[in-house]
Design a protein around this nucleic acid. Structure first.
Lengths: 116, 116
DNA sequence: TTGACATAACACCAATTGGTATCATATTAA
DNA sequence: TTAATATGATACCAATTGGTGTTATGTCAA
């Protein structure tokens, strides 16, 4: 069914819309980090980073784990899969498009060969 | 290099953040449509739809082709590929995660078999 | 040519967003 | 216990967003 996973995808796509949040995801893909560690790598306040992390968590793109007075932010790859799955529906179309392009190129080559 | 395609991805991710726009993309995947045809399928004004289409065009997710007094909106699958490619970087991580899950399940099965 | 149609272009509005500064709370270490 | 640390929570602000209504423009058909 077309559109399946649409509702669940909203939180993920919303979270992915901001470049800072996408950067955070890339950082977390290398290692888990506390808020403080994330803050060090950006030029915005801790409060701003916290908001981004909250939105990422709401989108199920990361999970947060308390450890003493620190809170470890961990990438949740499965959350990203929601968005990936939605987008993958369109693969068939750009596959077709690429194939059409390929055929056009081949035809061109053939014409060229004929002329020669 | 990590983060490649980041900048170009912004327009696409921004466009994908809105559920109405994602619905429009699904509709356009079935057939090209004029603004009027898109409007018929939603409960919002033509002006609102036009704004969404403009944002989709800015994100290179659709292309617009004039035809007399009509303007045909067409899906640009290659534009979606920008977002897909960015997300695919994370495949390795949920592949790993899924594999870990798989191993855990197998171990469980083995334990069960032993008990029996 | 003239009316109807398809769209573009504004100006405007309420809600959301990304950011700030400030204050409160919980945990660690001396 | 007390000071430093790590975080959460709140109030506030400017800019953006998703929506509206209205007006202007270009194109088709009688």
């Amino acid at each position: 069914m077309i559109g399946a996973g649409h509702h669940e995808a909203q939180g993920a796509f919303r979270a992915l819309a901001d470049p800072t949040r996408r950067d955070i995801l890339l950082m977390l893909s290398r290692e888990d980090m506390t808020i403080g560690e994330v803050v060090e790598r950006f030029d915005i306040t801790r409060a701003a980073v916290k908001k981004h992390l909250t939105i990422l968590e709401e989108g199920a793109l990361i999970s947060v784990h308390a450890s003493g007075r620190e809170r470890i932010n961990r990438l949740e790859p499965l959350g990203l899969k929601t968005a990936t799955d939605w987008l993958n529906y369109f693969n068939q179309f750009w596959d077709e498009r690429l194939q059409a392009l390929q055929i056009a190129v081949e035809k061109e080559e053939k014409e060229k060969a004929k002329k020669k």
